[in-house]
């Protein structure tokens, strides 16, 4: 963890919406990696914790031209004044200057949920209940991630625990630099279609930096000026328009 010598990275994702099939492997891998338990039945669809969540959108055309697209949306790790950082009364959200990752620290959070209101991507989730696992499963949790108690907010942090593990491995081998594929979040690793790619946006030779420069790339709610670190790729116009959310609401019928 040296300072001035290392140039700062900006970790980001490039998610190809033309490859995503909505299989849900990324959501499952995320829940397993982050020790997210099954909430009680009263949780329903809205109170569960889905640090990465795949939404379904339709093109609005009738059968048989109806098409669906799936959007995996997690924390966008905004690069320019993340709204959640600004509003937190506890300084529980911090942008790591070395990696560009916006870190949510449950240890500081007091659960006011102001950040949940501030996040334009609805990427933050509240622990309404204490975690409870089926008997025996508490011994088969990811030891690198501490379970959170009720009353705190959490969100995707690009599997920061894996970054720590990668740094530890590098230190054990006497290196101070990480190899390109040594640190990948769980969702990136899990995607069978390789729709989610991860890397350093600040390194112009990396795959995600290259993908971010393509004309297919767009960001969600770009007009807000949050400069997310997550870019989405699609050739389809109607999918690209979803990023602006200025069209008719998803699922609304056309008449």
């Amino acid at each position: 963890m040296s300072t001035a010598a290392a140039s700062n990275s900006r970790y980001g994702m490039a998610i190809d919406l033309d490859r995503c099939t909505g299989c849900g492997a990324c959501m499952v891998a995320c829940a397993v990696e982050n020790n997210v338990p099954v909430p009680p039945p009263e949780a329903g669809e809205r109170k569960g914790i889905t640090l990465l969540r795949v939404y379904r959108a339709e093109n609005g055309r009738p059968f048989p031209e109806a098409e669906t697209a799936h959007l995996p949306i997690g924390c966008q790790h905004c690069g320019e004044e993340p709204p959640c950082v600004t509003v937190c009364p506890q300084n529980a959200v911090e942008v790591d200057p070395e990696t560009g990752i916006v870190g949510q620290i449950p240890a500081r959070c007091l659960g006011c949920r102001y950040c949940m209101a501030a996040c334009p991507y609805h990427a933050r989730y509240f622990n309404w209940w204490d975690p409870a696992w089926p008997a025996g499963m508490e011994q088969a949790l990811n030891p690198d991630i501490a379970p959170r108690m009720r009353g705190v907010v959490e969100k995707c942090n690009f599997c920061h625990g894996r970054l720590q593990a990668a740094k530890a491995k590098a230190a054990a081998e006497g290196r101070s630099e990480l190899k390109p594929d040594e640190y990948v979040p769980a969702c990136v690793e899990a995607c069978p279609a390789r729709a989610i790619r991860f890397g350093d946006l600040a390194d112009s030779s990396s795959e995600v930096a290259r993908l971010a420069r393509e004309p297919r790339a767009f960001r969600l709610l770009a007009r807000l000026g949050t400069e997310p670190s997550v870019v989405y790729l699609s050739d389809r116009d109607w999918v690209r328009r979803l990023g602006d959310a200025a069209g008719p609401a998803l699922g609304e019928s056309h008449g």
């Binding site: 849900g24 959501m27 499952v28 829940a31 397993v32 997210v36 338990p37 099954v38 909430p39 949780a43 329903g44 669809e45 569960g48 889905t50 969540r53 795949v54 939404y55």
Partner: peptide, 9 residues
Amino acid sequence: ALAKLCRES
């Protein structure tokens, strides 16, 4: 984890 996926998406 899969039951959770089915419930929440």
